[in-house]
């Protein structure tokens, strides 16, 4: 089986909120150089979902990762290879910048078409920068394949894919025909660590790089988007927390309760 996983390089979402600074001129947020970008955490779990299927028969299944961006950091984008993915394709060009979900999904779908063979496509449920969660469904719609979003379990049996989809109060069990696109949620469980052997193999492997012309698109990135950002801003927080203290922590705890009575919330 051929599986494709879309992985995005993002600012580190787990870094302290104070590290995010507004770059108003470019309508985006930036982090200081000491905070390293990462693979979007859900996308690592999407790789994990594909690898769990690959584990059932290593020789029969192939996992290809596609990452779109510009000036991608090799050590970051190669992580899926060191986890056990077979191939890495980078859609890397300045022209890919400034795209919205529509532009990104269109480019990824074109790249997947060029890869040609696919039974399952995995995405993260959302990426941690714009948190939009529409690229996966968009790719499925462009390619005309079914999609199941926010998955916590994915298994293949009898030519069908069985998916558990997380809902607000539980989950749904679904069965879909293949090819199918699945977006993965954190409930799937932790992604595996890269092994030393994997890191060695990944360091030797050269990613394939495709430009817009390679995927047959003349409009990508900012030129292909449907939405525009009117304004990006960082809301100001008042941040006036009253800290209750006392030499005896238990006394402070009691005073905290008294405070809530004073506020009339208990």
């Amino acid at each position: 089986m051929n599986m494709i996983v879309c992985c995005k390089q993002v600012l580190d979402p787990e870094a302290a909120p104070a590290t995010f600074k507004l770059d108003a001129a470019n309508n985006r947020m930036v982090q200081p150089p000491e905070v390293k970008p990462v693979i979007n955490p859900y996308d690592e779990q999407a790789v994990e979902a594909a690898l769990r299927i690959k584990d059932t028969d290593k020789a029969a299944h192939k996992v290809t990762v596609i990452t779109l961006g510009n000036n991608l950091i090799r050590d970051v984008v190669k992580k899926p290879l060191s986890m056990g993915a077979d191939e890495l394709i980078l859609l890397e060009d300045a022209a890919f910048e400034g795209g919205d979900g529509f532009a990104v999904a269109s480019a990824l779908a074109a790249a997947i078409k060029k890869v040609g063979q696919f039974d399952l496509i995995f995405c993260g449920r959302q990426e941690s920068e714009w948190d939009d969660g529409q690229v996966g469904s968009g790719i499925a719609e462009i390619l005309g394949v079914p999609s199941v979003t926010v998955a916590k379990k994915v298994e293949v049996a009898g030519g069908q894919v069985k998916v558990e989809r997380v809902t607000a109060d539980g989950f749904q069990k679904l069965e879909a025909s293949m090819p199918c696109l699945i977006t993965v949620s954190n409930e799937l469980g932790e992604a595996r660590y890269a092994t030393l052997k994997g890191i060695m193999a990944a360091s030797k492997k050269q990613p394939i790089v495709w430009k817009p012309a390679d995927i047959g698109l003349d409009k990508v990135g900012a030129a292909a988007r449907k939405t525009k950002v009117v304004k990006l801003f960082q809301p100001v927080k008042e941040g006036k927390c009253e800290i209750i203290s006392d030499d005896d922590l238990k006394v402070a705890a009691g005073k905290l309760a008294d405070k809530l009575r004073e506020y009339k919330v208990i």
């Binding site: 800290i243 203290s245 705890a253 905290l256 309760a257 506020y263």
Partner: peptide, 26 residues
């Protein structure tokens, strides 16, 4: 502490029992 209106700094294991006890009384 940047988001909260009020709080206590310390180990919850010490704070929570005393806090809960006082809430109960109140």
């Amino acid at each position: 502490f940047k988001e909260a209106r009020v709080g206590v700094v310390g180990d919850w294991k010490v704070i929570l029992p005393a806090f809960t006890q006082r809430i109960k009384e109140l």
